[in-house]
Design a protein around this nucleic acid. Structure first.
Lengths: 137, 137
DNA sequence: TTACAAATCGAAACCATTACGATATGATTA
DNA sequence: TAATCATATCGTAATGGTTTCGATTTGTAA
């Protein structure tokens, strides 16, 4: 998803377009990987002096709710990235730079049969490590 | 792992055996599934009036470090359970009662080939939902 | 350009977890 | 068994990430 698609979705849902919202979207579009609220906050403080936690966290949650961002949780901290918008898939996540690599294979396909009588609400499959770039650096 | 095996391991590592430590182990042995620090705290307060956060969290971390407990993270909270001590495997986790079902299949076996040049540090695969017991209740 | 709902600010509150000085206790040794 | 001492625990304060709130500002529809 790119920035203008995200703004369009934001408007469709009845949210206003503000400079802070645009800058948050641009940040994640450029990031191309997972980022923490803290990292976003630091970036935003540089261009909007005095920006509040409220603004950052509220917008992260809105973006996640309406599908602009996807999120995961690592070491007690939430991470966000632009939504991939394509087929169901999983991610390798670089612990150094946050960049991701899509994993097309979903283990659920092979497992559903072994969970008869269970209600499956969701699943999480993620691989952590270092990407080739960070590995050579 | 049962309580006496856990106590033996604790002693081998040079830790002392206290009534609190034994009661924590018994709690997890009986629980047969994931529990939060809060749930443990509530249980412990009933049998050791005035028990401190320090005691609960410190022992959870010690138990996790030496492999008595395994842990995961859900909604910003850590969950702990007795270590299964057998082959590498994953879990279905019941969101209602915390009970788990082992999933023998590990998706990493099929995926390692697609991550040449990546350093793989770890992975997480978990399935969430309701177990048959909670489903019928 | 007005009007008003929605967004933002600044700061406090919240929740899970960690840390710390003082005291108590398990286990080793005499 | 009693003395010793490192370790465990208590009571409480601090921390880190996140959420919430009243007051003010700002998009946007009329």
């Amino acid at each position: 998803m790119n920035v203008s698609e995200a703004i369009e979705l934001l408007n469709d849902k009845g949210f206003k377009t503000t400079s802070r919202r645009k800058d948050i979207l641009t940040y994640f579009f450029d990031a191309d990987g997972y980022r923490t609220a803290k990292e976003l906050m630091q970036h935003m403080e540089a261009i909007h002096e005095g920006i509040s936690f409220d603004t950052v966290y509220r917008n992260l949650n809105i973006y996640h709710e309406i599908g602009i961002l996807e999120s995961t949780e690592l070491n007690g901290e939430k991470l966000f990235r632009m939504n991939c918008t394509n087929e169901h898939h999983h991610h390798f996540i670089c612990k150094e730079c946050g960049k991701t690599k899509e994993i097309a294979l979903c283990p659920m396909d092979d497992i559903k049969g072994t969970l008869k009588n269970y209600y499956i609400e969701g699943h999480k499959f993620e691989i952590y490590g270092l990407c080739p770039g960070c590995l050579s650096a």
